[in-house]
Design a protein around this nucleic acid. Sequence first.
DNA 1: GTAGGGTTAG
Length: 953
Amino acid sequence: MATLSLRLSPHLPFPPTSTINSTSSKTNGIPPFVKYPVKTFSLREICREGKLREAFRSFGNDLTSPGHSYKPPDEAYSLILELCAAQKALSQGQQIHGHVLKSKSVADAVFLDTKLVFMYGKCGSLLDARKVFDEMLELNIFAWNAMIGACVGNDRPLGALELYKEMRMLDFPLDAHTFPSLFKACAAVEDLCSGCEIHGLTIKLGFLSNAFVVNSLVGMYSKCDDIPAAYQLFSRTSVREDVVAWNSLISAYAASGMSTEGLGLFEEMLYAGVTPSSYTFVPVLQACEEPALGKLGRGIHAIVLKSGRHLETHVANSLVVMYAKNNSMDEAARVFSEMKEKDNISWNSMLSGYVQNGLYEDALCVFSEMKILVQKPDQISLVSMLAASGRLRNLSHGMQIHAFSLKNKMDNDLLVGNTLVDMYAKCGRTDYMHFVFDRMPYKDSVTWTTAISGCARNNLPMKSLQLFREINVEKMEVDMLMIGSILLACSDLKCHSLVKEIHAYFMRRGLYDLVTENTLVKVYGDCKNINYACKVFKLIEFKNVVSFTSMMSSYVDNGLASEALELVPRMKENKIELDCVATLSILSAAADLSALRKGKEIHGFLLRNGFIIEGPVASSLVDMYACCGIVDDSYKVFSSTLNKDLPIWTSMISAYGKHGYGKVAIDLFRRLESENLVPDHITFLAVLYACSHSALVEEGKKVFESMQEEYKLKPWPEHYTCMVDMLARANYLEEAFHFVTMMKAEPTAAVWCALLGACRVHSNEKIREIAASKLMELDPVNPGNYVLVSNAYAATERWEDVEEVRSKMKGKELKKDPACSWIEVGNKFHVFVAHDRSHPESDEIKQNLDQITEKLVKGGGYVPQTKYVLHNVEEEEKVKLLTGHSERLAISYGLLNTTYGTPIRITKNLRVCGDCHNFTKLTSKYLKREIIVRDANRFHHFRDGVCSCGDFW
DNA sequence: GTAGGGTTAG
């Protein structure tokens, strides 16, 4: 009786759990609902309020109370199943399923089975849904719709379309609720064909007047990139007064990147007098995510505030995201702090916003705040935090998040796994990276790409290639990002044939985009194939700043700095703005050429445009000024840089070293140590170089020792070269030789070069012979080495040996670089090679030079030292050869064309010869001009007849 | 029907 009356009652009465207990039902034996007025406690109300625990407990108590006589009606089951579905409470839903099976009171099995299918679908258990569905004896349209919905909601759009086919085969009539799910399925697989077919059916069946159907159709067309069809539907049907239709189309525009059109439609909508809903604001704000539309976004914010919709979490979240994407994290934070209710999406939007704007520390702060406020971080929060840890190279923080993910069983998430792989790669821990990678249950192409680039970035190029091979075996799809990572590995290997192979591989597959092309320019440059780099660069249709920077840095790396500088005006022609990375390449080219004017121009550009001078930009400026001969300006940049990193200290030490201020360089090194910075290999190289060029042998030895003992750094071949050079120059030839024999590593050609070079100044026949033969053995294709060997023989007038070396060189068709010097006057470089007559002012230059030489011989004490002429010719001829050296031509030109009182700056591609050095010293004294010469090795500041190198170079 | 997450170049 009671059951029947209840089923008829619109408000199902259920006793609240808190007030009922087993004793009460035990003691009086009366079913509790009898005791309570029907209207007060209804399951409907409990369910409407979403109180699952309460609903479920009362439900459970009723069924488990000893002696209970209550049999829930179908509607009670239905209500609680819907609640389980809404709250994705699978285990509770399964329990209810158990009760349904046991219950003998179920009146409408088809009805409840349909609800079960629905519940399982919503709770993500597609298999259970399918099981119930398959076992149903009778199917109605609700069951079909529930099953189709379950497929769509659980990433099985093809399953939904299969069911649709079955329905059509059975000629089962579809209803208005079937279509939206089907269109969603078509959209998910971008199956425009099926979508159109089903669209035809809706017309045939007359469902096109249904707003839900139309809106889902609009959504389908937009997901399948057929915006015109979506728009046509919108304009043809009579849904223009329906805010939902507007929303669908605006969403379609926003989702396909047609922001302006979407915003235009929004304006039209306001004009048509349709009131926007929160569903309108979300896509409209999404359309404003491009930074160019930021201003508009603020305007929309004002409209949102007027409408009062900012109080809705969805809308406020969209505002946060819009500001984050517009690089206005301050605004985003303001909206966030004023939110009444924050959900995980709000927190995660803030986290990812900070990460995307590079404000990693802020992201870490938000995360700890989140944990304090008991907002449980989810997988998405972890992804942001791992990304922040990786980019900060903060291994310990990254590991903490990893531990958190393990503890909370979130490590199986694909994206968490991928970010973990990346985080460990960025922190240089490829061992942990592989640990995570190997244990990931599912991998996608991002996983592989991340691992490949992780290996490439951590100097494991062979491992990268191995992974790439595995991918091809696994038939995983290769995309452009993966190609980029592989190219990175090739670049590491400097293997030009491999790069060509990969180049052909992706050309064949049509995997070509700007990023890949730009990478290729750089990689060909790294592999010393500048011709290919140029070819690829020329073929890039729409070059951007990265294309130009890649080409410039390839030029610079291949010794073609002036070609790099020639690209700068071409960037301007193409209206491409310089950014700070591009300026690095230009500064490095300027440094190579001693192009002070260009360097200063870039410095000015950086200051004018508000670039913060720190990091690589600051060290490049230090280096540029030093290479242009103005070490004081290097120091100005150095001292005005607030956050001095290790590279800028190293650059400054190296600057002093080049200019022969060895003691200052060592002082700076001590200051660096006292600031608790840890010097690296490069720093030590700079210090040792400085010692070597200032004859600071004892200091150099100490530094070399501390490098190994204190800092536990294993010397590179370059460090040994520096030490040998230092000892040999200071005439400790025997000790230098001994040092070479005691080296832990095999001596490289450069080490023998250093030794041989010193033999020219401090003659030692035994060492010279050994060094010369070793050099020829280790590097027989470098023309410079032949010149060095030949010069060493020439210095002791062993002309037969000189001839032999020269003929060997000829036989191998090796040509040495001709010596050349240049000077920057006005806006131009004036380049001279020895005995050059090609300059338009050649006659004046020669005449001026002859006059100076004559004066120096007569009154300046200049005696040409013909031993520096390394050709076996007559004495008179030797003098002629000397006076035609390229640096003298450049000096003569400088004297003729620069104002008295300004220093003359000359750059030479080879080392200065002894006679020119003497000549320049005397010129500086006699003509009272400061002359600064940068040769292949270092700087010489000539003033009043003295050179800063102390005649030691 | 709405919002948040991972791998690319100099």
